[in-house]
Structures are given as C-alpha cells and as structure tokens.
C-alpha cells in the first residue's frame, strides 16, 4: 500500500500515466473518491499511457466506454458505476474482464467476485476546501500487485 500527495490536476494526470504504464490485460482498477476528487483526471492519464483511442471523459451517463488502443492490445474499459444499482447491472455490461484493462469509478463493493486481484485507488480531498491537494492511497490486492510501485 502506498500513500501520495497529489497537488493538482497535472500531477493527478501524471500519476495516471505512471499507473497506466504498468497495466495489462485482466487488470481491474477501482477508483474511489467523492465528486470532483480526480478519478476521471487520473483515468485520462492512464488512457494516455495506454494509447487509448477516443476522448476519455466521464462515462457516468453511458456507464461504460470501451477504448481501443493504438497498439491494438487489450482495450481500456472505463466504467462509472455511479448509476448502477447493483453488481448485477455491472454484469449486464458484459465486459470481457480477462481481455481488457478495466477502470471502475464508484465501483467499491461491486467487483468482489470478478477477480482475485484488484488495484484500489482511493482519492481523498481536503474537506475544508483550503487546499487543492489530494491524498491518494493505492492498495494492491492479490498476487498481481505484490511489489508493484508507482
């Protein structure tokens, strides 16, 4: 588990790039944090590192967006579980988890049975509103993430 201070959107984007460089097919990342924490910003960074095609913007309304990659490798699937009532509805999206790199915003608790390995990125904001800095806690669950650093 690691904790980082991220000072602004650019740094969040950069963190996303560092994470993205280590992702591969079958990886599952859950992004936890309140509105405006920077989940989508982070995902944009991941998308850049992966060479994702298409605009990486919030998929709240469409729930999931699949981005093919320039290299043709495993696509990046950007999911926003905000509107989903249950894990069953996540199923309905029919995501090919083993063959994709999946990032799920608001996904805490929805992904339990999908994989033994999970990368949890929790982004906390300063509630007093004084500072823009985010505290990011990255927890790797399962063999896959043993010893992986960003």
């Amino acid at each position: 588990m690691m904790q980082l201070q991220v000072r602004d959107a650019d740094e969040m984007h950069a963190l996303g790039i560092r994470i993205g460089k280590q992702l591969r097919a079958g990886d599952l990342v859950v992004l936890v944090g309140p509105l405006g924490a920077g989940k989508t910003t982070l995902t944009r960074g991941v998308g850049e590192a992966l060479g994702a095609i298409g605009n990486v913007s919030s998929p709240t309304f469409v729930i999931a967006r699949t981005h093919k990659r320039e290299s043709g490798e495993a696509p990046m699937v950007h999911v926003d579980a905000y509107r989903l009532g249950s894990a069953d509805e996540l199923d309905d999206l029919d995501i090919d988890f083993p063959k994709s790199i999946v990032l799920v915003e608001w996904g805490k608790g929805m992904l339990d049975d999908i994989s033994d390995n999970l990368l949890e990125v929790e982004i906390a904001r300063d509630h007093t509103g004084e500072s823009e800095t985010r505290e990011v806690t990255i927890t790797g669950i399962g063999e896959r993430w043993a010893g992986v650093e960003f």
């Binding site: 509105l35 989508t40 910003t41 944009r44 605009n55 913007s57 919030s58 709240t60 309304f61």
Partner: peptide, 18 residues
C-alpha cells in the same frame, strides 16, 4: 469540440445530488 470530462447533463445530475 466536446467535453473533456463531464457532460453538461451529467453535471446537472451530480450537482443536484450535492
């Protein structure tokens, strides 16, 4: 051009919740 993060309608939905 298009949105680089949230769609406008989405912003309405989220702010409404707030």
């Amino acid at each position: 051009g298009e949105t680089i993060d949230d769609a406008a309608g989405e912003a309405f939905d989220k702010v409404a919740r707030v």
